[in-house]
Amino acid sequence: MAQRDLSRCLLRAIAPISRTPRPIFASPVARCLSTTTPRPAELLEEPQERFKAAEPFDFAKEDGPRSGGGGKRLLRTLRIVPASPSYFSAKPTFTDDFVRLSALLRTVATLPMVAPIDAPKVAWKTIDQYRIMTNEPVRTQRFHKMMHIVRRLNCIHPSLMPEEVLQAMQRFKKDSQPGDIVPNPGVIDELGRAKGVGRRKTSSAVAWVVEGEGEVLVNGKSLTQFFGRLHDRESAVWALKATQRLDKYNVFALTQGGGVTGQAEALTLAVAKALLVHEPALKPALRRAGCVTRDMRKVERKKAGHVKARKMPTWVKR
């Protein structure tokens, strides 16, 4: 009898580890259990796990239908083992996670690994995000210990990665991963034009690139008419010049807003993007030439009490 009870309790203890994903209890009042101070609204937008403490033992049921002792008999004979190993802590989610990951690591420890640098790139949740998700004041050091295990799991050779590990890691990944958002591939239209859009400072430019012999029109004018400085002309067609494609394509572009330099550098980006539609393999070369990344710098706003963005008024003694 006692043996059977013990095994049942053990089963219960293991239950949360074997069951993945975690059971979700549909309880609208989950937040009532929180002992932490309310957080600002924007932080609460993070999805928070619903949490409920372990279910109470139903002693009447354990006693069996015949007995009428109200569970007192069982209570006397049983040594109760809680379902979660962290039953006696205030909130067990973190400890559960940690124990589960450690157990998982023991099972997959012998699988071959890749060097950390070759492991798939993953954006992990930050400690703040994890705290909000679990609604638990997790200590930084402990969190990092846990993330160490997660990263170790991520280093398992991708071809041998077990499904359960993938599922376990899913809990610690950010919602959007780098490379999740793939832009629509550009198309060359029926007239052979590829379009690219670029921006810099407050200028924006649209460029259409077609196969040709190096003719460039910006807002209907030639490059020399539109850009007085040689430097700006070179900037505008830098994507083509840096890849030795200046004699292979024609460009016609529209640009507006901002000043001369901004328009020229917006054109750099626009032409590069349009060129990438024609020849996607040029991306590394263009990145090296500095034509792929949008330069996000803009004029810093002026602040109250300052003369400019940061300049303070002259100090006067009285």
Partner: peptide, 21 residues
């Protein structure tokens, strides 16, 4: 050819003054 075309393009499709410049 590459050099000539580059200068030709940067000079606004063969503007001789700009080419010389």
């Amino acid at each position: 050819d590459g050099f000539v075309t580059e200068k030709w393009s940067l000079a606004g499709m063969g503007n001789i003054g700009e080419l010389e410049r």
